[in-house]
Computed example of a mutant assay.
Amino acid sequence: MSATAVQARPSSTTSADPTPRRPKGRGLGLVAWLAGIVFFLPIAWMALTSFHSESDAATNPPSFAAPLTLDGYREFFGAGGGASPWPSLINSTVASLASTLLVLILALPAAYALSIRPVKKWTDVLFFFLSTKMLPVVAGLLPIYLFAKNTGMLDNIWLLVILYTSMNLPIAVWMMQSFLSEVPVAIIEAAQIDGAKLPTILTRVVAPIALPGIAATSLICFIFSWNELLFARVLTGVVAETAPVFLTGFITSQGLFLAKVCAASLVVSLPVLAAGFAAQDKLVQGLSLGAVK
């Protein structure tokens, strides 16, 4: 009896093994899909409306079975005699890419000093960087406008480059400090033993290891710069007008041309969507390294 009982115990424990919780996993997956669809619906609606005529786009409720046309895109690109969007798109590209490049050049050494070779009270330094983002943008608008007016930099694309760099630099240092803290110090010490200087260590040792974090930081800085409207609206006119400012010109006293606005919004959003799609793996990998800890 005792031997039988002893032999029966393993079978009872094996039969009591927990089964995978598939219903719960399927439920979470369904919720994730529903959330993704909810967030995607406005973009899909905007894309569909951009291919409708103005009369069909203005119907309420919207006519999803209306015939498709490219008139909204033709008018956006100046086929109807309107202003060309290319100067504004080029200005946004120059301001976003140049400011993002400057942010990376300045943020990488700063993050290196705060993570791998930390300075005294480095947590206070990080808090100071982050506290600069707490100032309302409107509070600094008038001083910056007066400075730009007195220095003759109004309607200058390079003024936006400087502003976007200063605006994105604190958050970039904060993010990259978290990324670079994951870099093994032993690799850097080995490079120093081999005679590598600081620029070589940053470009050939630290940067390749922290590439996902650098890509995530670059994408976020690019999006912030591309979408910025307030400073571009106040500090630019005709020469340095950016794409978001160009979009505001579609709201006129004659009314809101919905199909044309949707076409313009979709075109202006494409660079950001393309950059996010191209770097989505690096973005997820970079954010998972600890940028949102």
Rank of each mutant, 00 (worst) to 15 (best):
M1G: 13
A5R: 12
A5W: 11
A8S: 14
P10N: 02
S15T: 13
T19A: 14
R21P: 09
R21H: 12
K24A: 15
R26H: 13
G27R: 10
L28F: 02
G29S: 13
V31K: 06
I37S: 13
I37Q: 10
V38M: 13
P42W: 02
P42F: 04
M46P: 00
L48G: 07
T49L: 01
S53D: 12
E54A: 14
S55H: 15
D56G: 04
N60H: 07
P61C: 11
P61N: 11
D71G: 08
F77P: 03
G78K: 02
G80C: 07
G81I: 08
A83Y: 06
P87W: 04
S88A: 14
L89P: 08
N91T: 04
T93N: 12
V94M: 08
L97M: 08
A98I: 09
T100N: 05
A107F: 08
L108D: 04
P109R: 07
A111Q: 03
Y112R: 00
Y112Q: 03
L114M: 00
L114I: 01
I116G: 06
R117C: 05
K120F: 08
K120S: 08
L126T: 00
F129Y: 14
M134N: 08
P136G: 05
V137E: 13
L142M: 11
Y145L: 08
A148P: 05
K149F: 07
N150S: 15
M153C: 00
I157Y: 07
W158R: 01
V161Y: 01
I162T: 12
L169P: 02
L169C: 05
V173C: 00
F179P: 04
F179L: 06
L180H: 02
L180W: 05
V183R: 10
P184M: 05
P184G: 06
V185S: 15
A186E: 15
E189P: 07
A191Q: 12
I193D: 04
I193H: 00
A196H: 11
P199E: 05
T200S: 07
I201H: 11
L211H: 01
T217L: 05
S225Y: 06
W226C: 01
L230V: 11
R233C: 03
V239L: 10
P244T: 04
T252S: 14
S253D: 15
S253Q: 15
Q254G: 14
F257Q: 09
L258S: 05
S265G: 09
V268M: 02
V268P: 01
L270S: 08
L273A: 15
A274D: 02
A279E: 01
A279Y: 01
D281F: 15
K282Q: 11
G286W: 06
L287S: 04
S288T: 14
L289Y: 00
L289C: 00
